[in-house]
Amino acid sequence: MTQNSGGGGAEGVDWDAEAASFDEEPDHGLRDPEVRAAWAERLRGWLPARASDVLDLGCGTGSLSLLAAEQGHRVTGVDLSPAMVERARAKLAGRDAVFLVGDAAHPPVGEQRFDVVLVRHVLWALPDPGRVLRRWWGLLRPGGRLVLV
């Protein structure tokens, strides 16, 4: 795949070039108050009530990362696109969040470090989903949650 951020895209998409307008899409930037509120409510149901370590794979510009951070979670986001990661860092400046450039299928993080692995619009774009799911499962602490959208 060429420049696939793992943030919900097809082969051949140049995600660095898409970063500037990515949040303009209704379901990407979550700028519409009703859409944002609906996603925040869904995350409340999917994420633990207590502050947790959340890994957002294929994080794009960090829209879900921001919602998780607003709910008190510590977020690590990973995206293949440096431009997407730059926007996520800016969006979450001053929050308990770290963003890394890396492949969502093989994130540059340690095993059993996270309470939640959150993945939205990514799995379908990866070549070996079974292997990737096993890898992601290994990133979770015992009792952790794998949240796939």
Rank of each mutant, 00 (worst) to 15 (best):
S52Y: 04
T76N: 03
G72L: 10
G6Q: 09
L146Y: 02
V35A: 15
E86G: 13
L66E: 12
D96A: 15
D32L: 12
R87C: 12
V109Y: 01
A17Q: 13
G29D: 13
M1L: 08
G45A: 14
G58V: 07
A105R: 08
L133D: 05
W124T: 08
G94A: 12
H106M: 09
D128G: 06
P129E: 11
G45C: 14
A104K: 04
G6P: 05
P127L: 09
A68I: 06
A38T: 10
S81V: 06
P48C: 12
R36Y: 09
F99E: 10
F114V: 02
G94E: 09
R135C: 08
G144I: 04
A97Y: 01
V85H: 08
L57D: 03
F22C: 06
G29R: 03
A38S: 12
V109D: 11
G7Y: 00
T2Y: 09
R135Q: 15
D16Y: 09
D14M: 07
D115Y: 02
G138A: 07
L133Q: 07
V117R: 02
G62T: 02
N4L: 12
V116W: 00
G62P: 01
M84A: 13
H28L: 10
R131D: 12
D32S: 14
V109E: 10
M84G: 13
A97K: 03
Q3R: 14
L92A: 14
G60R: 02
R135K: 13
A49H: 05
V132G: 03
V13N: 13
R120F: 08
E25R: 12
G130K: 10
V78C: 05
G58W: 04
D23N: 06
S52M: 10
L57F: 03
D27G: 05
L55C: 12
R145E: 04
V147H: 01
R74E: 10
G62F: 00
H106Q: 06
R42N: 13
R87E: 12
S5W: 00
P82H: 07
R145W: 06
A20Q: 08
A19Q: 10
D96H: 02
